[in-house]
Structures are given as structure tokens and as C-alpha cells.
Nucleic acid binder design. Structure first.
Lengths: 187, 187
DNA sequence: CTAATCCTTTAACATAAGATAAATAATCAG
DNA sequence: CTGATTATTTATCTTATGTTAAAGGATTAG
């Protein structure tokens, strides 16, 4: 849990009481490469934090596996379109390397918001930052060729290309595996 | 202000005290068609609510005007990538019809979070909902042809096509004006 | 009301990316 | 270690979208 509390400090440092309250509603999960942490079709009731490993959020569109995003050590994963609406998620979370993950019970967390305003503030800030990332990502998608998007990824997150199968990277970039391969060949 | 408070009720009803506190840090703005409400290059210190009119957020990429989003009556506009980071925004807000807008001083609002947890909660929920919209929008962009995106817009937000010049719609859809025209001709 | 400007469409051509298929290369299970 | 599966690359062809240019419509300023 210590790693998670360190992460929290960057957003909103918590009192010991608040940390303990979060520890009580959290569990450690060890999960093997390629396994789904959460399957498609259930309401998202958990917020995850990656201590070790890589994960992706994915879904199927017309039978095709599409990666929405990649997540590395020291980051939060949640399928917010379900978490914040209560609707079942059409998305799954899959681990791409053997991983150590903290699972936080979201309903219990939302209850803690009432007794610990500092926790509500913490998660407000965490999700505000995630929101900003998402807005910036749209800007990266609009009006860029596939090659530009690939180069941007290579530049901003080279670890993605080192640790993640290219077929997942392709759909993340919004192109086919074949196109990605062609772009990489063109150097 | 009444229209804004009605909007708030959908997220988190406020006490009279809280409403008054927000009223005190807000001003009404009347602005003419095609005028910029906020120019490019300043840190975003204001959250807007549209009582009447249409607006868009836009920016320039390689000299080309790109629309990030459209906003209609009864919605909040903010350039969150600046609001939540404090960095200057490379984006501007332009009004596309004569508009009536409530401008909320963001720094003053953030201070109110300390005295009114209900206000912090309200805006947490507002931006969580906006975050969900943005995540869903990425899904709409990835792996859809321009024609599919156009039809989706026609279906989900026909008012955009009725009230907004097509040249702005084109960049919003991530295509050129010429392509959009061709797609519309194919019907 | 008219001229000037701006918006939208149409046309012709160029190019990036999709689809399909097949050949390598890498990984995994037994 | 070996065969089987899975991932990646390469090739060929097709198609959607970009680019540029020009024409027609619509809107606006004076």
C-alpha cells in the first residue's frame, strides 16, 4: 500500500486516518500475464492501482479487439464511463505482464467521501488529471496521420512499444496492425 | 443565475448559502456572434455556463483552425487542460450566435471548495460527467470512417448541423471541409 | 441594394490507409 | 526440444480522404 500512498501525495497528502480508511477497503491482487482483471459486461465497482506490471483497457467493436489505453506502474485504472454512471461497462481490463495491483472498492470509497473530505478532494484531483490527459489525447488524434501518431507515441511513451504487443498498439493508434507494420518499416 | 442553479440540481442540489456564494463570484456576459469569449494564450481562470447561444472551443494546428467541441444552452464550458493545470491554454472559446453566458471566477470557486464541501462535490460530479463524455468521444473517433462519424453526429446532435457552420463541423469530425461536403452529397 | 466577403459544393488528381493473403518470426504448451 | 500457435511483416489491390482549384450560394457591410 505504501506505493499507493506515495502516489496520492502528488495530488493531495492524506492524514493517517484517511490512509487507514483506504487501506481497509483495498485488497492486493496478483495476476498473471494475459489474464483479465475485470471482464466485459459488469458495472465497474473497483478502482485499480498498478504497483507492478502493465495493463490495458479494451473492448470489442464489430468483433475487433480495440485498445483504449495502456497503464503502467504507479497509475490508476478505472473504466470511468461505468464507474461514474453506474452502467455496465463494455470494456475489460487485461494485464499484459505478471502484475501486482491494488484494488479499491469504489462504492466503499464513495462512502468515505462523506467522512473524509480530503479523500474526496484527492480523487477529484486524480480524475481531473486523468480528464486532462484524455482531452489532450483527442487533440493528438484529430488531424494527425497514423505515422505522426506513431512517432508521437515513440517519443512520449517509448515504454509502450517496448512492453506491449504491437497488435494492441495498432488499435490504440486507431489503425490496423498491417498499417502499423508498414509505418515502422518506412522507419 | 436561476438557469444555472437548475442545472446544478441535476448533479448536486445546493443550499441557499452555497448558491449565494456562487452568485457572488459570477458575472453575466452578453456577447455577439463570432466574438471570442476567451482568446488563446491565457491561463483559463473562468468556468462558463451558457444560458443562451452556441459556442465552440477551438485552436490552431499548423495554422489550421480546429474545433475541439461545441456547447449549447445549459452546459458548462471550460478549457480544462488549462483550468486543472494552471498552464496557459492554446485554445479559445468563440460564440457562434449572440449569447448570454454566466462567467464563474475559477480561482474564487476553488476557494469556496474549502468552505462549501457541497460545492466541491457539485463540480466534482460535473467534471466527472464531462470526463465520461470525453472518453466516449474517443471511442467514437477510433475506428470509424468519416461517414460513420458524420451520421453519428447527425443522429446524436442534429442541432450541431443546424446551428453551426459546416467548416467548423468538419474539423470537429477530424476531416476537411471538402470531405464533409462529399459525404453529405453521397447523403 | 450592391459589392465584397465568406461558406459550401464540385471536380480532378494524389496518397495514406484498409482488406486480404501469404510468408517469416517469435512464443508457448507439452 | 519440437510442433503448434500467435505475432509481425511483406505484397498486392482497393478505397476513402487529402489537396488544390474553381464555381456557385449565402451573408454581411456600407
Amino acid at each position: 500500500m505504501e506505493q499507493l500512498f506515495q502516489y496520492f501525495k502528488k495530488f493531495n497528502p492524506l492524514s493517517k486516518d484517511a490512509e487507514n480508511a483506504i487501506a481497509e477497503i483495498s485488497t492486493m491482487v496478483s495476476i498473471k500475464k494475459n489474464k483479465d482483471l475485470q471482464p466485459i459486461g459488469h458495472a465497474c465497482k473497483t478502482i485499480y492501482f498498478i504497483n507492478k506490471g502493465v495493463a490495458r483497457i479494451y473492448y470489442f467493436k464489430d468483433g475487433i479487439d480495440i485498445t483504449e489505453g495502456f497503464f503502467f506502474e504507479n497509475s490508476i485504472i478505472a473504466r470511468v464511463e461505468s464507474l461514474f454512471t453506474g452502467k455496465p461497462s463494455r470494456k475489460a481490463i487485461q494485464v499484459l505482464e505478471d502484475a501486482e495491483i491494488v484494488a479499491i472498492d469504489a462504492n466503499a470509497l464513495f462512502k468515505l467521501y462523506n467522512s473524509f473530505p480530503e479523500i474526496e478532494r484527492l480523487f477529484r484531483k486524480i480524475f481531473e488529471a486523468a480528464y486532462v490527459d484524455t482531452v489532450n489525447r483527442i487533440e493528438g488524434i484529430q488531424f494527425h496521420t497514423a505515422e505522426e501518431r506513431y512517432k508521437a507515441l515513440l517519443n512520449e511513451a517509448p515504454n509502450v512499444l517496448q512492453r506491449v504487443p504491437l497488435k494492441y498498439v495498432a488499435s490504440y493508434l486507431g489503425i490496423t496492425q498491417v498499417s502499423l507494420s508498414r509505418i515502422r518499416a518506412h522507419h
